[in-house]
Amino acid sequence: MTDLLLANEPLIRLGFFLGILLAMALWEVAAPRRRREIPRLLRWSNNLGIVIVDTLLVRLTFPIVAVALAVIAEERGWGLFNAFETHAWVAFIVSMLALDLAIYLQHVMFHAVPALWRLHRMHHADLEFDVTTGLRFHPVEILLSMAIKLAVVVALGPPAVAVLVFEVLLNATAMFNHSNVRIPAGIDRILRLVVVTPDMHRVHHSIHPSETNSNFGFNLPWWDRLLGTYRPQPREGHEAMTIGIEQFRTRRDLWLDRMLIQPLIGRASNYPINRERNGDKQ
Rank of each mutant, 00 (worst) to 15 (best):
Ala31Asp: 06
Trp223Gln: 11
Val51Arg: 06
Pro10Asp: 06
His205Asn: 09
Val152Arg: 03
Ser210Asn: 11
Arg13Gln: 03
Phe84Ser: 09
Leu14Gly: 01
Phe216Val: 11
Arg252Trp: 06
Ile243His: 08
Thr61Ala: 15
Ile265Pro: 02
Leu99Glu: 03
Ser45Trp: 03
Ile245Phe: 07
Val108Ala: 01
Glu246Gly: 14
Gly237Arg: 04
Val140Tyr: 05
Tyr230Asn: 05
Glu141Asn: 13
Ile50Asp: 04
Ser145Tyr: 04
Glu74His: 14
Phe216Trp: 05
Glu75Cys: 00
Arg13Glu: 01
Met1Trp: 07
Leu150Thr: 07
Leu26Glu: 10
Leu26Gln: 13
Pro209Asp: 10
Ala73His: 01
Gln233Asn: 13
Asp253Gln: 09
Ala30Val: 14
Arg118Lys: 15
Pro234Glu: 11
Ala147Arg: 00
Leu191Lys: 01
Pro234Gln: 05
Phe92Ser: 09
Phe248Glu: 10
Glu128Pro: 06
Ala88Gly: 11
Leu69Arg: 04
Pro198Ser: 10
Val196Thr: 10
Arg192Ala: 05
Gln247Cys: 03
Val163Asp: 03
Trp27Thr: 05
Ala70Gly: 13
Lys149Gly: 10
Arg136Asn: 11
Ile243Cys: 13
Gly157Gln: 02
Ile265Gln: 12
Ile142Gln: 14
Asp100Pro: 09
Pro232Arg: 13
Trp222His: 13
Leu127Met: 14
Asp199Ser: 12
Val53Lys: 00
Leu69His: 04
Met122Cys: 14
Val153Glu: 03
Val154Lys: 06
Leu226His: 00
Leu80His: 00
Thr86Trp: 12
Leu226Pro: 03
Leu56His: 00
Ala7Cys: 00
Gly49Met: 03
Arg59Asn: 11
Ile148Tyr: 11
His107Asp: 08
Arg235Ile: 12
His123Arg: 04
Asn82Trp: 03
Thr197Cys: 09
Asp257Arg: 07
Asp3Tyr: 03
Leu21Gln: 06
Asp188His: 03
Glu141Leu: 07
Leu48Val: 08
Gln262Ala: 12
Gly49Glu: 02
Pro198Leu: 09
Arg235Gln: 15
Ser95His: 01
Lys281Cys: 02
Val58His: 01
His205Pro: 10
Thr242Phe: 01
Gly237Tyr: 04
Asp130Ile: 07
Ile190Arg: 13
Gly79Ile: 05
Ile142Tyr: 01
Ser269Pro: 02
Arg33Met: 15
Ile183Asp: 09
Glu75Ser: 11
Ile72Asp: 08
Glu276Met: 10
Leu264Gln: 00
Ala125Trp: 06
Lys149Trp: 08
His201Trp: 08
Pro234Asn: 10
Trp223Ile: 07
Arg202Leu: 14
Arg189Leu: 14
Asp253Gly: 09
Ala66Tyr: 04
Arg136Gly: 07
Arg59Met: 13
Thr250Trp: 06
Thr133Val: 11
Leu4Phe: 13
Phe129Cys: 02
Ile243Ser: 10
Leu191Pro: 02
Met109Cys: 12
Leu97Pro: 06
